[in-house]
Structure formats: structure tokens, C-alpha cells
Computed example of a mutant assay.
Amino acid sequence: MGWKGTVRSMGAAVRAAERDAKRRQRELERQRKQYEKMQELEQSAYEVEVYENHIDVIQSLHKECSPPIDWRKIAESKAPEKPAKSNQNEKNAQLKADNYKPGFLDKLFNKEGKKRKELSQKVELAIKKDVSEYEESLSKWEEELKDWEKSVGIARSILIGEGKAKIEAIDSLDPFSEISNFGSSLVISVGENNIVEATINVHGEEIVPSEVKSLLKSGRLSVKKMPKGKFNEIFQDYVCSCVLRVSNELFSAIPDELVVVTAVDELLNTKTGHLEEAPILSACISRRTLDSLNLDTIDPSDSMDNFVHNMSFKKTKGFEAVPRVEPELLESA
């Protein structure tokens, strides 16, 4: 089995461990189909639950991760065994032909010759079936061999630190689908120091709701503009959660010990008066440090203090542009 097959086989386990917020999101999506049939108060309760679940989901992205790939095991794996030719179908058919003994009715109606001819024809068909089955198994083996050769080649290249192999593995695994579903896009690259760098465009205005939904005592829906401070705090948690999730996914995909993850968004350039993309968080994430954290209980924003990072954030103003983490700082991460 190639490395892609290994990942697919582990998918069920990942889905079983799906965090509560994501699982609840799926349940709410199913309920959405029944929305029109709900009474007004039920609709209000549903809308509030969807709103609260969305906030929970975007602040807990870091709590899930794809299974790690054991590249050393793949590199040391044995090639699939070439199938051997078999004439089992022919043997079975020939045995029936050899053991045929005409019965009373066959003799009475002179069917012995016809029966022997039919058995002989079945032997010929069995021979063709043996050939067909062998060719099919051989074709399957050739595909598995190509997959194995590619997998071993990528694994060996990754283990010696080849940047191109790292990018190929990450692109093929596509571990960032959940983040992409929220509209955030990623670009992966390898720097001159062979450190993998990821840039996330977080699209804050599109991800974090601009309104707060709650239920009044009457059970009716209340919709108010979200206070700027609350919006900024939720956005900060979302950005930091994204950075942690991307880092963890990279560590699952490649055996590196350090990665640099930078989140960018549109900020107002006060010199030009235009919105421009700029880094708002840039962090060097250490595998050892990340592994030591309890991701189920941390505050994603507070957790950035565990890493070398650049972030300028105020609850009243939100993010400000910051420089990307420089490679020379990585040794102190």
C-alpha cells in the first residue's frame, strides 16, 4: 500500500475522533433542510445554535489534525510481490473431465460423446480464465509497483530534506480542506534554509460574523451588531487557531522539526487610504513545543507566547501589520 492508501485507511479513525463542534455543525446542517417546516421559535433557537456553533468551530480548528505519515516506514517498505501464474481453474475443470463416468441415461440416449465434448470445452475455457485472471492480477501489481516506487522515492527524498519532495507530499495529501472551506487560502513554500513556510490568507471580515444572535426571554430572535472588541477577540482566536492547525498538519505530513506559518489579511494602509494585504501574525512553530501543549484546553491566542512570533493586537483596534519571522530567529525557537 502506498502512502496515499495509508492516509485513506486512517481516515475513518480521524472522522471518529472529530471534535464536538465540528460534529454538531454537521448535525445542524442536516437540520437546515427542515428549517422551513419549523415554527418561529424553533427557527430562532436554530439560528442561535448555528451562530454559536460557527463561533465554536472557527475557534477550535487547532483541536483536530490528520494522522501523521511514517515516512521512514514507507521508505523501508518492501515492494509488492509479483503474482505467480496459476492453472487452478484448468486443474479443476480437467479433474471433472477425468472423473466423468457416463450414467445409465447418458448411455441410453447416447450422450456420452456430447458430455465429454462439453467437459473438454470447459477445460479450454478454464485455461483462458487462468490467463485472464493472471493478466488482471499482473496489471494490478504493476500499478501497485509504480505507486510503491513513487512512495518510496518521495519518502527517501523527504527523509534527506529535499524541499521539492516536501511540497509534493503536502500538495498530494491536501490536509487543509477544513480551513479552505472557510475561505482561507494557503500557499506553501520552502525557504533557502529548507524550512517549510505556509502563508494563510484568513479573510477575517468574511469568517467572523458581524452580528450577535441570541434568544430573548420570549424565545424570539435578537440580532445586534457585534461589538468591535468582541469581533477582534474572536478573530484573533480564529487566526491563532488556523496557525496552530496548519503547523500541526505540516508536522503530520513531513518530519520537520520547525515550520514558519504567517497569517495575512487586508489592513488599511493609512498612507494610501487603501486596503492592502499584510502579515498580521507570523510564527515559528516548533514540533516539540506544539506536541507538549494540550490543544483541547489552550487558548489559541495565549498559546502564541510559547513560540517565536510577531503579532501586534489590541482588543480595541484589532491586528496591526507585522514583519514576517526572519529565518535567523529559527535557531532560538
Rank of each mutant, 00 (worst) to 15 (best):
Q25P: 06
Q25V: 00
H54I: 00
R19Y: 05
E27T: 10
L61S: 01
V57D: 01
V57G: 00
E42Y: 05
K63T: 12
Y51D: 12
E40I: 08
V57R: 03
E42V: 00
R24C: 02
S60W: 04
E47C: 09
K33P: 00
Q59P: 00
R32I: 00
Y35S: 02
R26E: 14
H62G: 03
Y51V: 09
K37F: 07
K37H: 11
L61D: 01
R23V: 09
R26M: 10
Q39F: 01
V57P: 03
L61F: 15
E52Y: 04
K33V: 11
R23Y: 04
E64W: 06
R24L: 11
R19C: 14
V57C: 09
R23I: 02
L28T: 10
H62M: 06
K33C: 02
L41K: 14
L61V: 02
E36G: 08
D20P: 04
V57L: 07
R24A: 03
L41C: 01
L41M: 10
E49Q: 14
I58C: 01
D20F: 07
K37R: 15
S60C: 11
I58R: 02
Y35K: 14
V57M: 09
L61R: 01
A45K: 12
V48D: 03
I55E: 01
S44V: 05
R23F: 02
Q39N: 13
L41I: 07
Q25A: 14
E29M: 09
R30D: 15
H62T: 04
R30M: 12
S66Y: 10
E64M: 15
Q25H: 11
R30A: 14
E29R: 07
H54A: 08
E27K: 09
K22E: 11
V57N: 03
C65I: 07
E40N: 03
S60K: 06
Y46M: 07
I55L: 15
M38G: 07
